[in-house]
Simulated scan of single mutants.
Amino acid sequence: MADERMRRTPRQKYGEELKIRRLAADMTQEALSDGVVCSPTLISHFEAGRRLPSPVDAQRIDLALGTDGFFTRWLTDLDGKYAQHFAFVAEFERQATKLRHFSLSLVPGLLQTRAYSQEVLRTFHANYSADDIDRQVVNRLERAQTLDNPEGPVLWCLVDETVIRRQIGGPRVMADQLAKIAGMAEAGRLRLHVLTFAGGAHALMESMLYLMSFDDAPPIAYVEGLHTGHLMDDPAMVRSCRTAYDLALGDALSHRESVALVRSVAREYEDDAR
């Protein structure tokens, strides 16, 4: 059976607590919806974790249930800064003692510069507002602060050569981005390994992979696709993911060779930017 923490998102926890408090107050969904001034169906969505109430709705829930601002205060911690499928990943990486990331085409979010992140996020949206992009960039940069802590998790990054060769945002953006990665690797905050084109096929060609290890909990694995992600805690699945990572790592350049390659490509971008 999957660990309970894998199966309940923060929104679902909010909804489950709402249902518990509603039943404790001996209220039906219809009765609560009258107090909130919404449909019973919307209350059902709240309780299932499919939707979050607005701040006004949360205030009305507190008034109807007599919960003294409980759901209003909790809502501020569920501001949707991350996509729902990624919310738990963001929580777990702060608790992890070791992070091992494989990236197939993009610089991992924890390592992205502001300019690189802006270009990536703009590309993901056909219609976007500058404010929305700025908010997402800030969220991504805040995640990266976990690496500023000397007692934070050890980070291993295994990247396909595509990550450093695909020009995102132009040569100036790429030069700065690769300089940041190389600098972190040289400073001991990052173990870096590149899977080169010359190496041919490797065990992680089909997907990105994120492995997280903890002192007081079993390891977990995460894979992500377009608008979706899958968090795994089943021991057999996690072992299989770790084996694939180890196989790919065995085909990669050494840390020293990888840093040298990234520095070399960064210089090429520097030349193009002049």
Rank of each mutant, 00 (worst) to 15 (best):
P108Q: 14
G109R: 00
L111M: 12
L111G: 09
Q112A: 06
T113K: 02
T113I: 01
T113M: 02
Y116G: 01
Q118W: 09
E119P: 03
L121M: 15
T123M: 14
F124Q: 11
A126K: 04
A126P: 06
A126C: 05
N127C: 06
N127H: 12
Y128A: 12
Y128N: 10
A130H: 13
A130V: 03
D131C: 06
R135E: 13
R135G: 09
R135K: 14
R135Y: 01
R135A: 14
Q136N: 10
V137K: 02
V137T: 05
V137F: 02
V138M: 10
V138H: 14
N139W: 11
L141S: 03
E142V: 10
E142Q: 14
E142L: 13
E142R: 14
R143N: 03
R143F: 04
T146D: 01
T146G: 11
T146V: 12
L147S: 09
D148S: 13
D148I: 10
N149M: 09
N149L: 00
E151W: 07
G152Y: 09
P153F: 01
P153R: 01
V154Q: 12
V154K: 11
L155V: 10
W156Q: 01
C157V: 14
C157M: 10
V159Y: 01
D160V: 04
T162A: 15
T162F: 10
I164T: 05
I164N: 05
I164H: 08
I164W: 04
R165N: 14
G169P: 10
G169L: 02
G170Q: 08
R172W: 05
V173W: 07
V173T: 13
V173K: 08
M174R: 05
A175K: 03
D176Y: 11
D176P: 00
Q177A: 08
Q177K: 08
L178R: 06
A179Y: 08
I181T: 05
A182C: 09
A185V: 01
E186L: 14
A187R: 14
G188V: 07
R189G: 03
R189Q: 15
R189A: 07
R189C: 04
R189E: 10
H193M: 01
H193E: 13
H193T: 07
V194E: 00
L195D: 05
T196C: 09
A198K: 12
A198C: 11
G199V: 00
G199A: 15
G200A: 07
A201M: 15
A201Y: 14
H202I: 03
A203H: 00
A203P: 02
L204P: 08
M205I: 13
E206H: 11
E206R: 15
E206A: 15
M208A: 15
Y210N: 07
Y210S: 04
L211R: 06
M212L: 15
S213K: 03
P218K: 07
P219V: 05
I220G: 00
A221Y: 00
A221T: 07
Y222H: 06
V223T: 15
E224Q: 12
G225V: 08
G225C: 09
